[in-house]
Amino acid sequence: MQNIYSSRPHAAITAIGGYVPQGRRTNFDLEQVCDTSDEWIVKRTGIKERRILEQGLATSDMAVMAIQDLCTRYAKDIADVDAIIVATSTPDVLMPATANIIARKLGLKNVWAFDMNAACSGFLYALDMGASLVETERYKNVLIVGADNISAFVDIHDRSTNILFGDGAGVIWLEPSAEAGVMDAFMQSNGDGREFLNIEGGGSLYPTSQETPDDERRYLRQDGKVVFKQAVQSMSNACKHILDRNQLGIEQVNWLVPHQANKRIIDAVGKEINIQEEKTLTNIAYRGNTIAATIPLCIWENIKLIQKGDLLMLTAFGAGFSWGASLLRWMI
């Protein structure tokens, strides 16, 4: 009996795009609103500035501009898209899904479009799901978007968060391939991190109201020490697991693309998995933590370094806690 799975295609990334807002929030800007300094921020995070979306625009606007960038760079026809998965923690509105809004703005009438919220791990979660859609042949051209307007939820006076977060959007195009592009993924979550990293306001438990417009729950809050420790441990373990499962040594990985949360976390993960420092891609210094957008934006901004056939290992950690790692062969 013929194995029906043997002829199924692989999923490969065939295009990538990105967008970052024009507005900048520098460390010197933050010195004016809270007790901090450029030297202190750079030493603790590696961040010098972050991009901030202008008022009146939302997550969907950045996503659309990233998709348009992709289509222009790689001569892709947006009409070919049959599925859009948007990883975001900052949807335009609670409903409908931001993916639906993006489809409308792109003029797509018959497309499967939905959001996925796994915080900073969202892009990896969405990438794995999108690859599965392609591999099962249910969909042929899938856009995976990572986009967050997180500055809208940052208390500008809170030094534990205002130094870290910025806005942006990244997107990749997945389609069938005879060769393995997206090779493997390992995703985990446990729910243990709710109290340490969250935005509590705006949901069904703490809905926004006219009576409490300044409710502190509407802001992003985190316990940096707990998050730091968990992020390093979880991302390192996920990378080791996926290497072991694929019988690969770290020396075979051309590029590590970690979630851009904090330069010290990035360095600690690299040291823990014993990868050469020059093999780790970063863009955190001038972008900050853009939540679900960090990994696609980091690849997009370092694209000239990556060669066709290179082996990339992606890893992320976010609220939940949620974390994971992906392994892919670069096919562009």
Rank of each mutant, 00 (worst) to 15 (best):
E200T: 12
W173R: 05
D38T: 08
I284L: 14
D128E: 06
N149W: 10
T294G: 00
A319G: 15
E301N: 04
P21Y: 02
A113I: 01
I299E: 10
S60P: 00
K43V: 12
S89T: 15
G249T: 15
P296Q: 00
M187D: 08
G288K: 00
D80Y: 02
A261I: 08
T88C: 09
L143W: 11
S177W: 05
I306M: 11
T26G: 07
Q276P: 00
D80E: 14
Y19N: 10
Q222D: 09
V20R: 04
L53Q: 12
N117A: 11
A97C: 12
R104N: 15
G309A: 05
I52W: 11
I273Q: 06
N100P: 03
S151C: 07
S6E: 15
V134T: 12
L30T: 15
V64K: 01
I273N: 04
D158R: 01
A178T: 14
K225I: 10
I156A: 14
D82Q: 02
G318F: 12
G146A: 09
E200I: 10
S189Y: 01
T136K: 10
Q210E: 09
K48Y: 15
S37R: 04
V142D: 08
P258T: 09
M235S: 13
V226Y: 08
A126S: 15
V226W: 06
P91H: 01
I47R: 00
L70G: 09
S7Q: 10
P296R: 01
Q55S: 15
A58M: 05
T72R: 12
T45R: 03
K279P: 11
T26F: 03
R73E: 11
T36W: 00
D29L: 02
A118K: 00
I299H: 06
I242Q: 06
R44H: 10
G202N: 00
G46F: 02
V253L: 11
G203P: 03
E49A: 15
Q230A: 15
E135K: 14
V93S: 13
G193A: 06
W40G: 01
E54T: 14
A325N: 05
R264F: 12
S151V: 06
F114T: 08
M116A: 14
P21Q: 10
D77P: 06
I266S: 05
E277F: 07
I78E: 12
A97T: 12
A113K: 00
E301K: 03
L53D: 13
I291T: 14
T88L: 03
